[in-house]
Simulated scan of single mutants.
Amino acid sequence: MLVFGTEMELITFIFVLFECLIFFFQFIYYLFRPQDKKRLFYLILLFLLLIYNFGANLFPDERIPLPIILQNIIAYSSGFLMAAYIPYYFYKVYDLKKLRFLAYYGTLLFIVAPFVLFFIIGYSLDGDLDNASQRGLFIPMLYGGYFVYAIFKEVYKKLKENVNSENIINAVIVCCAVLPWSILPVIVYMDCSQTIEVLVCNSGFCIMTIIFIRQSIKESKAEYKLLQEMNKGQIKQEERYELNCKLYNLTARETGIVKLIDKGLKYKSIAEELFISERTVSKHVQNIFIKVGVSNKVELIKKLNE
């Protein structure tokens, strides 16, 4: 069943309405806490999903005053754009360091390059969409399979380091979330119906939303408990410093750098202490400033000691 005389089916329209509602409330929440980078990554993912649901399901339409070739390129670009962002999302949000290559270079080589080569250039020249789809989706399809393998391997490695019920649940949910995204190129490659494509794509997002909300609730409870203890004066100064670092979502590396800054060490000395480059230290410090909402080291130390 199509809606409003467009090529969009009813189930797609329902998902779009639901996701627009989620985006609105999450964006309002982010405005109050701009240091929450995980929420920002989630909002970007949701925005790209909305673009995909519109672009892939409204185009092509002969009633739209755009060339059909351009409409098809726009439709496919929305899917490739979202596919290019997903490895980066998992790399950043779940702190899977081994996915760095896939998140940056793998995306350019195996998603962006095939799209430019086969759709923007090839399809524009010969107008053969079937040929562009068969060739342009084959490499991303293989890449999606390898990405699933890399995710499973990294999640299993993290799970082995600390086996408990909470980590087992998180590992299972993450693996369930990545599967629908990985098989999406296969669905498009096989030219399945819009209903199947939408269900597969949006089911992955729904699982990731469950993960995100679950983590947000857990962090909010911990933060509330922390604030209560702070107000009661039950936390020593050094503990307060550590907890403030957690409150601003500083990573273990960033917390270590802050402690060295607090001791008066320069960037060069910090780099030597941590066996990293001075440029890397500077990059970490800039990220810390953004998270804490300060512009210099004096403000940073003062705020974390409050």
Results as ranks from 00 to 15, higher is better:
69 I>W: 04
107 T>W: 06
136 G>S: 00
82 M>L: 15
53 N>G: 00
89 Y>G: 07
114 P>A: 11
123 Y>Q: 08
112 V>R: 07
86 I>T: 06
103 A>Q: 10
138 F>S: 10
130 D>I: 11
141 M>K: 08
89 Y>M: 08
65 P>R: 08
96 L>D: 04
90 F>D: 07
68 I>L: 14
118 F>W: 10
133 S>F: 03
105 Y>M: 13
82 M>G: 08
114 P>Y: 07
107 T>S: 13
139 I>R: 00
93 V>T: 14
97 K>H: 07
70 L>D: 09
88 Y>V: 06
148 V>G: 01
104 Y>I: 15
62 E>R: 13
140 P>F: 06
113 A>E: 05
152 F>M: 10
161 E>H: 04
137 L>H: 06
60 P>F: 01
55 G>V: 01
152 F>G: 04
61 D>S: 07
98 K>E: 15
84 A>G: 13
147 F>A: 02
156 Y>H: 11
143 Y>K: 05
67 P>G: 07
95 D>K: 15
71 Q>T: 03
133 S>M: 15
138 F>T: 08
160 K>F: 01
130 D>P: 02
123 Y>P: 01
64 I>S: 05
118 F>S: 02
100 R>E: 15
149 Y>W: 12
76 Y>C: 02
135 R>K: 15
121 I>F: 14
83 A>Q: 11
145 G>T: 08
150 A>D: 03
87 P>C: 05
70 L>W: 13
65 P>M: 00
78 S>R: 01
124 S>A: 10
94 Y>T: 06
98 K>N: 13
148 V>H: 03
125 L>A: 14
87 P>Y: 04
92 K>V: 06
59 F>E: 01
146 Y>S: 06
138 F>E: 09
68 I>H: 04
81 L>R: 03
84 A>L: 09
129 L>G: 04
64 I>H: 01
59 F>P: 01
150 A>G: 03
142 L>C: 11
117 L>H: 10
130 D>F: 11
63 R>K: 14
68 I>A: 07
73 I>W: 03
131 N>H: 14
139 I>T: 10
69 I>M: 09
52 Y>L: 11
144 G>Y: 03
133 S>H: 12
136 G>F: 02
130 D>Q: 13
132 A>M: 08
125 L>Q: 15
104 Y>P: 00
102 L>I: 13
132 A>G: 05
68 I>V: 14
150 A>I: 00
100 R>H: 14
91 Y>D: 08
159 L>G: 05
125 L>K: 15
98 K>G: 14
67 P>N: 11
77 S>H: 02
152 F>T: 10
65 P>Y: 06
103 A>W: 06
108 L>E: 08
116 V>H: 11
136 G>N: 02
90 F>T: 10
58 L>V: 05
154 E>G: 00
116 V>W: 11
72 N>W: 02
80 F>Y: 11
56 A>R: 05
132 A>L: 06
56 A>H: 10
53 N>V: 00
61 D>I: 02
62 E>M: 10
106 G>V: 06
141 M>C: 08
114 P>T: 11
152 F>L: 13
149 Y>K: 05
72 N>Q: 13
147 F>D: 04
116 V>K: 12
153 K>H: 14
100 R>N: 13
71 Q>D: 02
102 L>H: 12
83 A>G: 12
140 P>G: 09
61 D>E: 08
137 L>W: 09
88 Y>I: 01
64 I>W: 04
57 N>V: 00
71 Q>P: 02
